[in-house]
Design a binder for these strands. Structure first.
Length: 292
DNA sequence: GGTAGACCTGGACGC
DNA sequence: GCGTCCAGGTCTACC
């Protein structure tokens, strides 16, 4: 079965897929030119399906590799719209970016949207797993979670969806620590899953609740394992660009650009992009840094 | 509000 | 091959 999702223009699927490293983490797959990506979804009905998203005029084509009901197809369509952020209006950002040489090409190349996971829960878990580790470690931890707790794809059970909160909540710290190699992050992820599964928190509500950024940031920082960097990263994934995810790479890049390589703090990074207002985080994200 | 140490793992490095 | 050191953010305790 195939669906077509339309997107506000300009839209570039390769730009969305290559917007950050999510597509390198299971259960995502992609070609090296980022012309398509696949992922495995566990639907509300419990059905597990594989979807492939490729380029199409005005948006993207969604190929569903399994039989689904009309209700399930509608659910998949909504998920893909969310993942691709198809309705994002970047008019004011592009108007500003036209006057900045390091961002002048953003509009022409359709850059600006950031690939989201199907669920906010998956985005939060993966963000926690990017902290205090190398990228190879993040990939290993995500693979461990998917292999150990993911729902298998019928017909190809070696491939699995990202584990939903209730499935992960049934796990234990030792398994997460030893088998999935989460280390000290294990209790953070387990607590998050149990709170989400029990209804104590509702991360998916962030898709539709339009909270002011400071309030949303406060709620994200209240999650164990989510600090300044992770909160800023999640805010961007949720469509709030007024904070910068400052990690060691950001400190290096901003220092080289404006501070002659001298040691700086996150305050200097924020100050460097202050003029971008509500688009501060996106300007940082898309900035074309010197390669040196 | 700022700082120091602990947390955990993989990779780089020296022997 | 082995041991040591370091990088990578967050949490907690403390000032």
């Amino acid at each position: 079965m195939e669906l077509t999702v339309s997107a506000r223009q300009p839209f570039s699927l390769p730009a969305v897929i290559s917007s950050h490293g999510w597509v390198q983490l299971l259960p995502f797959e992609s070609d090296e030119n980022y012309t398509w990506f696949k992922t495995i979804l566990e639907l509300e009905s419990g059905k597990v399906v594989q979807v492939e998203i490729s380029e199409a005029p005005g948006g993207a084509r969604v190929s569903i590799h399994d039989e689904v009901t009309p209700e399930e197809a509608a659910e998949i369509e909504a998920i893909i719209h969310w993942m691709l952020d198809t309705d994002l209006d970047m008019t004011s950002f592009y108007a500003h970016a036209r006057h900045e040489p390091r961002l002048a090409g953003a509009e022409a190349s359709g850059r600006g949207r950031i690939l989201r996971c199907p669920t906010v829960f998956e985005d939060v878990v993966k963000t926690i797993l990017t902290t205090n580790t190398a990228w190879s470690g993040t990939k290993r931890m995500v693979r461990g979670l998917v292999d150990r707790y993911g729902a298998p794809l019928p017909g190809d059970p070696e491939r699995k969806a990202f584990p939903c909160a209730s499935r992960l909540a049934e796990g234990n710290v030792e398994t997460l620590r030893q088998e999935c190699k989460l280390g000290y992050r294990a209790p953070y992820v387990l607590e998050l899953a149990r709170r989400q599964a029990s209804g104590e928190i509702d991360l998916e509500a962030y898709k539709t609740d339009h909270l002011p950024t400071p309030e949303l940031r406060k709620q994200l920082l209240a999650l164990k394992g989510v600090g300044d960097y992770a909160a800023a990263n999640l805010l961007m994934l949720l469509g709030h660009y007024d904070y910068i995810p400052v990690d060691s790479w950001a400190l290096t890049m901003v220092s080289r650009e404006w501070y002659n390589g001298e040691p700086i703090t996150r305050k200097e990074v924020e100050a460097a992009f202050e003029g971008w207002g509500e688009w501060k985080g996106l300007a940082f994200w898309l900035w074309e840094w010197n390669a040196t």
